[in-house]
């Protein structure tokens, strides 16, 4: 029996390695799931003098999309976000660390999928949301609770798989 121990240990290890092949070590879960979205008040881009804070979106299910003009994947997801906005999804943007001040021009040129997009110049609010890079998208419910975080660009497949079922469920609870 003793002699079989190494083989058994290896079998267990191999099992874990197999499962590990289908996991992504770079995808870090957010500690905010099920918790209220961090509070912030930030200026709205393109509307000098106005600010936005999450309370203003209370009562509906909304997406907070962290993006930046310098981010390539954000450009990739932009057309799909436009499509979502047209179908009535509420998307708010957080323009993260836009040191070159390009966001406004870019949105004017390409169109904005956002109800408003706020300006997080020094990246502090991004850090409060535990952002590590762009794009990242949070799903926030009617009560202001974060329900999901998606890292990376959103496309049709991701939307169908991760967002739609959750949004359907959240809409029903109202």
């Amino acid at each position: 029996m003793k002699r079989w121990i190494p083989l058994i240990l290896f079998a267990v290890l191999a099992g874990f390695l197999y499962v590990g092949l289908y996991l992504n070590p770079r995808e870090v879960p957010s500690p905010f799931i099920g918790k209220p979205a961090p509070k912030f008040v930030l200026p709205v881009i393109g509307q000098p003098g106005t600010t936005f804070s999450p309370e203003q979106a209370k009562g509906k299910v909304w997406l907070l999309n962290i993006w930046a003009p310098w981010c390539v994947s954000c450009r990739a997801e932009h057309p799909f976000l436009m499509q979502l906005a047209q179908s009535g999804i509420s998307i708010y943007g957080l323009n993260w660390k836009d040191k070159d001040r390009e966001a406004e021009a870019l949105l004017n040129q390409k169109g904005s999928p956002y109800i408003v997009t706020v300006d997080d110049l020094d990246g502090r609010v991004g850090i409060d949301f535990g952002v590590t890079g762009t794009p990242e998208t949070f799903v926030i419910d009617q009560a202001g609770i974060i329900r999901m975080k998606h890292i990376g660009p959103i496309d049709e497949a991701v939307w169908k798989k991760k967002f739609e079922p959750l949004l359907d469920k959240l809409e029903k609870t109202t």
Binding site: L7, F10, A11, L17, Y18, L21
Partner: peptide
């Protein structure tokens, strides 16, 4: 690339698993 991963893991299974089984049997 998971495809590569599956291939090496299977190879590992054969080489390591096989030799440990041989060890258990013949040591």
């Amino acid at each position: 690339d998971p495809g590569r991963g599956v291939f090496i893991l299977s190879f590992l299974g054969v080489v390591i698993g096989g030799s440990l089984a041989l060890y258990a049997w013949r040591a």
